[in-house]
Write a protein that binds this DNA or RNA. Structure first.
Lengths: 151, 151
DNA sequence: TGACATTTAATGTAGGTACATATATTTGCA
DNA sequence: TGCAAATATATGTACCTACATTAAATGTCA
């Protein structure tokens, strides 16, 4: 459905305004579907992303600073997301012996097993981009990268 | 900057995964800039959007149902956003006389004046899409609309 | 007419972001 | 050595979304 119809706004000032609204709306649409997919596993999207980063480090630990560096949203509060994962016994937190300011965060066997189950469910494949061809996806990536170019 | 460099992930599974991450990242990037622009005026983005919808109705009132229908994020809680606008005296809430379940929400003169000031500041123009040509913006809109096509 | 369903908005709860501040530890350097 | 600056994380506050529930008013229909 065209964005005009999705939000019942028939006229935009220009293509730029329309593109911005379309972009934010489409990202929200994607996130909503992804969040719904993760819900049966008791995870939110940020929690899932952090678990994946931790698996990437495994069996080495990660620090909060490393998580922030790798996350999509740099300013988000990794500390509190780790709180939730710790409550669910999916990660452990121990003071880093080499630098007692830092915290070593590690994914647990339960966390690894959960990631495997989620991936086996094929959530990541049915993700909403099925209607675009390889070439269209490339175009989209190029346009988004260009859009973010700073003056 | 390419999305690979923005989030320090050199390899994606495929163009589709890259496009999804790129899309969510770019939308967040845009929203962050927009939120920063509204901050000096004491408004958040959802508050600004609701004020604009109310101005569109002015001098007629809007109901909460109408606001939800027009908003980008359909499931968001318009009621609580109106709470904040009411505290700031930018809108009024009165029980609808024709249907006492509904609430008539109206923008105040202060609300209208604030919108004018924001628009005069030119925030909506410097919005981050300056680097794309008219044709590229059209392409982007078409790709996003197609992406959201349901099976 | 009166019981029941529907509509409209508000509220409770859990989790998230953004930004400022606090606390503990380590580092650097006079 | 000792003290200030820097670092690493945690916490407080305000606001947001998502989803479920509640409360009040209205509509429906036997």
């Amino acid at each position: 459905m065209r964005i005009e119809d999705e939000i019942k706004q028939p006229i935009f000032r220009d293509q730029a305004q329309k593109a911005i609204i379309n972009l934010v709306y489409t990202a929200g649409w994607l996130q909503l579907r992804q969040a719904a997919a993760f819900k049966p596993f008791g995870l939110t999207l940020p929690q899932f992303n952090i678990l994946r980063i931790l698996r990437g480090q495994h069996p080495l630990p990660a620090t909060v600073a490393l998580l922030i560096d790798r996350m999509l949203d740099k300013t988000s509060n990794a500390s509190r997301i780790v709180d939730r994962l710790e409550e669910k016994k999916l990660v452990t937190r121990t003071v880093c012996p080499a630098n007692r300011r830092a915290v070593d965060i590690r994914i647990t066997p339960a966390g690894l097993e959960l990631l495997t189950r989620i991936e086996e469910a094929g959530l990541l494949e049915a993700n909403g981009t099925n209607h675009l061809t390889e070439d269209e996806l490339r175009q989209l990536n190029a346009l988004l990268d260009k859009l973010r170019t700073e003056a």
